[in-house]
Design a protein around this nucleic acid. Sequence first.
DNA 1: GGTGCCGATGTAATCGATTCCAGGACGTTC
DNA 2: GAACGTCCTGGAATCGATTACATCGGCACC
Lengths: 352, 352
Amino acid sequence: MVGLFRANVYRIILKYPGMANIKDVAEKAGVSTASVSRVLSGKKNVSDEMRQRVMAAVEELDYQPNLVARSLRSKRSRTVGLIVSDIRNPFFTDVSRAVEDTVHERGYALFLCNTDEDPAKEALYLQQMQAQKVAGIIYSPTRQSAHNFSNLDISAPTVVIDRAVRSAAVDMVLIDNVDAAYRLTLHLIENGFRRIAGLFGDASVTGRQRREGYERALQESDLRPPAGQALYIPPKIEAGRETALELLTQDQPPDAVVTTNSLLTAGALMAIRERGLPIPDAVGLVGFDDTTWGALVEPAVTIIAQPTYEIGATAAKLLLEREEQPDRSPRKVILQGKLVVRGSSGPVGQSP
Amino acid sequence: MVGLFRANVYRIILKYPGMANIKDVAEKAGVSTASVSRVLSGKKNVSDEMRQRVMAAVEELDYQPNLVARSLRSKRSRTVGLIVSDIRNPFFTDVSRAVEDTVHERGYALFLCNTDEDPAKEALYLQQMQAQKVAGIIYSPTRQSAHNFSNLDISAPTVVIDRAVRSAAVDMVLIDNVDAAYRLTLHLIENGFRRIAGLFGDASVTGRQRREGYERALQESDLRPPAGQALYIPPKIEAGRETALELLTQDQPPDAVVTTNSLLTAGALMAIRERGLPIPDAVGLVGFDDTTWGALVEPAVTIIAQPTYEIGATAAKLLLEREEQPDRSPRKVILQGKLVVRGSSGPVGQSP
DNA sequence: GGTGCCGATGTAATCGATTCCAGGACGTTC
DNA sequence: GAACGTCCTGGAATCGATTACATCGGCACC
């Protein structure tokens, strides 16, 4: 007797609330589970009476469909995965927010992963997401993966962001990195800087592309990267700081530094401060990404503002569009960075 | 004939690679699916020969278990949900990274949601996560939800972070906000500030607690919040800026401002700059959270550094522990913020 | 040698939905 | 009134795993 009572309590706890399943709803409404499913999935060919009875039962039982069961049977889920190197990079923070907003509007949930630019971690996450049967993946590949993208056997729809890949058979949302870095560097040259060092991220293809734009701008003005002062380094604040410290101690230090992401910019700024050099009079500084701090430091830092929110939102839209039209030909959306001129880039000799 | 051929191609595409299921593995190995499952789940009572045959078939077919099917049957998933107000708040960015690291180590994936402090969105996300059958939820509730936490009928294991809730029946990871704000305010007083304004976030209970610490510190020194200068406002940069601008225009402006999160700190800093007031000589400024920029602006901002990574990691560990021991009594982990003294907080009249 | 236990394996039920298919009711057409 | 199409509904298969239960062989014990 006691045993039975216990069992009942247990059952009640387990069943209530929100634990009713489609069978319970069907019973309560006096219809089949097939009909419940039809009503809930908004199919037509359902009578008004049926619809009402089912909805009443749903209300009464506080029924919530089990999404796991649903995706098992229907072979698709309302979940998308986002793979970035590190969510703490403000660029990816903003992108992730945009992605989440956009997919959420359409009833999708978001898986988030950080790869730390580690191809092994990346491969693992890609596999895990596919095992979870995500509807699609938004993905910022490491340099290695960008190279052999086609070997990655990703079967889920994929949108690549921020970093171009070789394979053309995938949607991409990028900015024109060569052009952005070109404009950024040109701006320094126009303001009178001549020995322009460059700190480029070594983990992704964006570093290479941005270096290309940097070199092109120098070339066109008959300048060259100062020897040993255009370097690929890990995209981390500490690496930026240490490398910049070293540059600034050399015999012929640079009169300006181009950096290609906000972490390197922060590191370089710290180094310049530590050396006690006035910006921009002794050293100019420019970078990428519009961070909170970039506008707050003094002088504020000249940067290329990437349309982060738009990148994330566009990627999410492309992905969900592909759900509808799996065979649509792949698109490559190229957005423009915006040069935001502030105090850190000169002109030389005219700062207050 | 053509039709048949097509069908085969389609099947091949669908099946390969990585599309083998447990039945395929069982057939290839010449055993039952039950045995495959037993081998893969690392159960004992499996012969060596069985293990080898199954593993060989798994290799050969590049089999990956379908996690959706697995969680449907076994009624648990290796996914945890994280619900924050906005991932772009540096506090939550860091926490999310810590959570992801920690759950990933144990083979779990992470769902991320932003509620924008909107109880409706929050309720929706909570429901959605439970429908997805997450293993647990890490959750930073809005003020409203913190109040009626027990009414939320969350059936999944939950760990509340950052913001205490009324119900004691849930794990929590918090910092001692009253004490932190007390120390922060006391520090200003000790440095000679007297008219200390306060900008407190209005969306969460942390704002209230931090105000309590602020008031306590003032009281103990026989001071009071300047009339109309201790305010609850939305935790956004723009709100912080506008409110601070207004404060600084009053007849008797504050000689220092306490802010309770990094967004309000940034806003207040902008306002002080716009008014052309020197920090800390005309106005002192202190806040919460150790952001990149807080150390880079001049003068650098005195703050309470919250142990963000530890908070996230601890919350994740508590959650996964509860998987093992569902009936363990709830724990409340209280961590300490660390006062990081920098230039923005004085002492008055002695800045270089 | 019978009994009982244990370890290894297979068969089949099960999780909770969707979806294929069959069939009944009803209307239309010739 | 037979034939046919359409609309609505329910029964049952299905998705791909886990797991309860049954079976069987071998070994120890009395």
